[in-house]
């Protein structure tokens, strides 16, 4: 169930990631390579960076859940409130545009000379940086991973979350995402609102129970 939940949360919120990180990351990734093969190579390096970041966050979330959150008295009440807050953030996220929410902006600032000098390390580091993204889907994943109350489950949850979100990044550089950005944006934003309402309901139920 942890594996399924993580993966599905990744897919359902991955559309949101795409809205904010896609326009920043994809031109960057495409700009690295000159053909499909090179693009794929850069993408693999980038995703490896992300997987490392996600494993670290999964470990920390699991640790947080084991050490701290499992021992507090009103656990479901606390998680309920967190869910509700994040759900509201996710809904707002759907209605408004937060330009600097994706850390992908950071790598645009990385010196282009550095990219030429270290062609393998830069995409990997970019993956790590964007892996630590403080956006509502990511925060929800942290809350869910902490809720599992185990370090192994936390890491597993984040690995599956990574796989779910990556589904959006892998085929897009090759399928004309840039041409249809507005379509993906509206789908992602609306998905964010609907997902927000689902978490709002889950949070309310947690408190009522």
């Amino acid at each position: 169930m942890i594996l399924t939940e993580g993966f599905l949360l990744g897919i359902s919120t991955g559309a949101v990631c795409l809205v904010y990180c896609g326009p920043v990351l994809i031109p960057y990734l495409l700009g690295e390579g000159k053909n499909v093969r090179q693009n794929a190579y850069v993408l693999i390096l980038f995703l490896s960076g992300r997987i490392l970041a996600y494993s670290i966050v999964g470990f920390l979330a699991g640790l947080l859940g084991t050490v701290l959150l499992q021992s507090i008295l009103y656990k479901s009440y606390v998680f309920g409130v967190i869910y509700i807050l994040l759900a509201v953030l996710l809904i707002l996220y759907g209605f408004y545009r937060f330009k600097e929410i994706c850390l992908g902006h950071l790598q645009q600032k990385i010196n282009s000379n550095l990219r030429k000098q270290f062609p393998r390390i830069v995409p990997f580091i970019s993956g790590v940086i964007t892996g630590f993204n403080i956006c509502p889907p990511f925060l929800i994943a942290i809350t869910k991973a902490s809720d599992t109350g185990s370090i192994t489950s936390g890491i597993l949850f984040f690995l599956m979350f990574f796989m779910g979100t990556s589904l959006y990044f892998v085929p897009l550089p090759f399928t004309g995402f840039l041409k249809r950005q507005q379509v993906f944006r509206i789908i992602g934003k609306f998905a964010s609102i609907v997902t927000g309402f689902i978490f709002l309901y889950q949070g309310t139920l947690k408190i009522l129970n």
């Binding site: 897919i11 509206i186 998905a191």
Partner: peptide, 20 residues
């Protein structure tokens, strides 16, 4: 006309939520 794509967001979430 861009709102015609919102049903695809509902489809995405509903399919995943039903599976979960």
């Amino acid at each position: 006309a861009v709102f015609r794509w919102t049903s695809f967001a509902v489809l995405l979430i509903v399919v995943l939520w039903s599976a979960a």
